[in-house]
Amino acid sequence: MQKGVIYKILQDVYKLRCSGVMAEVRQRIIRMQISLKTGLNLNEYTPESMDPDDDIQRVLNVIKGSEIGLEHYQYKKEGSV
């Protein structure tokens, strides 16, 4: 269990993949894709949530996959990537 990790990873993904025009639409697509591929309710992960290691790994596997394409992403507590 680690605190707030999935929330932080999602913020990183949005920053890397959803900037610029129509950022909200891009975020929506990414959120749906991660939920579909992990089966997780992403609304439950907050800066304070205690996130199971298995859930963290599921999210990491999806964002490193071909659709989202962050194969070199590494989670860091502060200022990742």
Binding site: R28, R31, M32, I34, S35, L36, G39, L40, N41, L42, N43, E44
Partner: peptide, 10 residues
């Protein structure tokens, strides 16, 4: 269903 966030429902 699952909830990707912001009230979305799949």
């Amino acid at each position: 269903g699952i909830d990707p966030g912001d009230g979305e429902r799949l």
